[in-house]
């Protein structure tokens, strides 16, 4: 593994550890419902501070079940991940294409795959 890939893997590993440690250490055990969303907790806090508060508007569309909701969240993440992968894939492909074109223009010495074409100077072929 190159040094670059090692650093990138370590970064990912640190993110995974940060997410997994609270679960493994049971940091949610003191709660009735461990690991609920902070957004939901804030709603609970609002009703504690102001018990008579009634939301005056409700969502136009609500996912009918937790399954549909998680599907839509997965869709959101998938769209984002798809676009990101497209970007990096395209960049990598373009860079490799450019390198190959440069290698071919620069002569077969730097491009082994161009060798069968012959060892002569590429400009000489035109004559």
């Amino acid at each position: 593994m190159s040094r670059n890939a090692k650093i990138n893997s370590l970064l990912l590993l640190a993110v995974v550890l940060l997410a997994v440690l609270p679960l493994v250490l049971g940091l949610g055990d003191h709660k009735e419902e461990p690991f609920t969303g902070a957004d939901t907790e804030a709603q609970t806090a609002i009703t504690e501070i102001k018990p008579d508060y009634e939301p005056w508007f409700s969502p136009l569309y609500e996912p009918p079940s937790g399954e549909i909701e998680s599907a839509l969240f997965a869709l959101q993440a998938a769209i984002g991940a798809g676009v990101l992968s497209y970007y990096f894939g395209l960049r990598r492909g373009r860079r490799q294409g450019e390198e190959r074109a440069l290698a071919q223009a620069g002569g077969p010495a730097t491009a082994p795959e161009a060798a069968p074409r012959g060892a002569e100077d590429p400009t000489a072929r035109e004559v």
Partner: peptide
């Protein structure tokens, strides 16, 4: 690259992760 930046926000704001307080965000 603009698309990629938007995509990064899309992915990260869909990732609900557990935290030290015992809740998720």
């Amino acid at each position: 690259l603009l698309g990629a930046s938007g995509a990064f926000t899309f992915v990260l704001s869909a990732l609900k992760l557990p935290s030290v307080t015992g809740s998720c965000s």
